[in-house]
């Protein structure tokens, strides 16, 4: 019996290993065609001419993720604070249900809504080479999509802060907002950070919604309203017809994406660990 559980647990690891191996096996042969430096730093993507440079997509993915996360964190944390500390319980419950709904909407619906609403609005006010299909549209859609994750995680960790902290802070004469910003958020830091990591992962990996609103031009964006293509969009767009080297190039793009996500996860968990250690030391002292 024990071994059945073991096997089930092992499946996750087997699948991850298998997927990693699959992408690497598919992508490695590509580097005999284009070396890794000109692949990562090449500024042109032209599969019919066998020119493969993913620098524009790499930059776009980073811009879009950073942009969406910045907006998502500010709005998401504020929402979480309102839910936990400010709204009365009943109102907070209604709010929570709405957020759960937001989390359950399929990404293609976000994309479609973005295409029909956000893109025309951007086109009307700022125009741009893609007539609204742009980096800005991608950032807006992504920031909405990662909100539920950030709100949920922040909410849970804010709630988990011991009551004594609040009583202590208020007893010492702190105002409600002083307590929230100086005590509660600090104590809930690791949970909030976990939420942000998950949010970044989702923003970086989102494909369908981005394809619909970003315009997919493989260029380095010079302005927020330029049409852009992310790493994920690059794979999804061209996988259908790609063959030979072009197909390997897409696998190699997948490898880069894989590495990027692992790197971000690693850096942020490291960051959280450090923060916790510092917290622990401070508390001891």
């Amino acid at each position: 019996m024990k071994y059945i559980f073991w096997l089930c647990a092992a499946i996750t690891i087997i699948v991850i290993t298998f997927m990693g191996a699959y992408i690497i096996v598919g992508g490695l042969p590509f580097f005999s065609h284009t070396n890794i430096v000109s692949f990562l730093l090449g500024k042109k993507w032209n599969p019919s001419g066998e020119i493969f440079g993913i620098y524009p997509m790499l930059i776009t993915s980073i811009y879009a993720t950073v942009g969406a996360t910045s907006i998502g964190v500010v709005v998401g944390m504020s929402t979480a604070i309102v839910l936990v500390e400010i709204l009365p319980l009943k109102a907070a419950k209604v709010f929570s249900a709405a957020i759960d709904l937001l989390a359950g909407i399929p990404s293609v619906i976000y994309g479609f809504w973005g295409l029909m609403v956000i893109v025309p609005i951007i086109d009307k006010f700022w125009g741009g080479k893609g007539a609204g299909s742009s980096l800005l549209a991608a950032i807006i859609i992504l920031s909405i999509m990662i909100l539920p994750t950030i709100i949920r995680m922040s909410e849970v960790s804010l709630k988990a802060v011991p009551k004594e902290y609040k009583e202590g802070a208020l007893g010492l004469g702190a105002s409600k907002f002083q307590y929230i910003f100086k005590v509660q958020i600090g104590a809930a830091k690791s949970g909030i950070m976990a939420g942000i990591v998950l949010g970044i992962g989702r923003a970086l990996g989102e494909t369908m919604a981005v394809i619909l609103v970003s315009g997919n031009a493989p260029i380095i964006p010079k302005s927020l309203v330029d049409p852009v293509r992310t790493l994920t969009a690059n794979i999804a767009l061209e996988m259908g017809y790609a063959s030979g080297v072009a197909r390997q190039a897409l696998f190699a793009t997948g490898m880069v994406l894989f590495a990027l996500i692992m790197l971000i996860n690693f850096l942020l968990t490291q960051f959280i660990k450090n923060a916790e250690r510092r917290n622990g030391n401070a508390r001891k002292a």
């Binding site: 295409l115 007539a131 299909s133 997919n216 031009a217 260029i219 049409p227 259908g240």
Partner: peptide, 25 residues
């Protein structure tokens, strides 16, 4: 044999996406 279509062109996946993009812009 490299495509000379302008790089800033909006790319749509499939005929449907092209029709939708042209119809809305």
């Amino acid at each position: 044999k490299a495509s000379t279509i302008v790089e800033t062109a909006v790319v749509g996946e499939g005929t449907g996406a092209i029709m939708a993009a042209v119809a809305s812009k």
